[in-house]
Computed example of a mutant assay.
Amino acid sequence: MEAGTVAEALPGNVSGDVVDSLPGRSLKTRTSEARKSAERGRKRETFGRFKLKQLKQAVRHETECLTAATGRVRDYLARHRCTALDRALYAIGDGHGNAAAISVVRVGFPKKSDATGCEKVEEVQGSGDLKPLGAAALGLAGFSFSGHHYDSRIDKRTLVIAEAETVAGHLDVGTLDALAEVSVWFPRL
Rank of each mutant, 00 (worst) to 15 (best):
A78K: 02
Q54V: 15
C82W: 03
G95A: 09
Y90H: 08
V121Q: 09
C118D: 09
R157H: 10
L77N: 07
L66F: 01
L140N: 01
Y90L: 06
K56L: 09
Q125Y: 15
Q54F: 00
H96T: 04
N98L: 01
L89W: 02
V105M: 04
E123W: 07
G41V: 12
A100P: 03
S113E: 12
R87P: 06
K36Q: 15
L77W: 01
T158R: 15
A100G: 10
K131L: 06
T46N: 02
V124W: 11
R87F: 08
G95Y: 05
R42K: 11
A136S: 11
R81N: 14
P132N: 06
K120E: 14
R44L: 13
R42V: 00
A137L: 11
R74P: 01
V124C: 01
F145E: 06
D75H: 07
G97A: 00
T67E: 12
H96E: 01
T116S: 15
G142A: 06
G95I: 10
L159Q: 07
L52P: 02
V121Y: 14
R44T: 12
A91Y: 11
G117S: 02
K111Q: 05
V107G: 03
H80K: 02
A69G: 06
L55V: 10
D151I: 02
L140S: 05
A84M: 05
F143C: 06
L85A: 04
G71V: 00
E62M: 03
E123G: 01
Q57K: 05
G117L: 06
G128H: 08
I102F: 13
G97H: 04
R49Q: 10
D114K: 11
A162E: 07
T46H: 00
I154R: 12
K131V: 05
A38Y: 01
R42S: 14
Y150C: 01
R72P: 04
R74N: 04
E123Q: 12
A78Y: 01
K111S: 00
K131W: 03
F109G: 04
G108V: 08
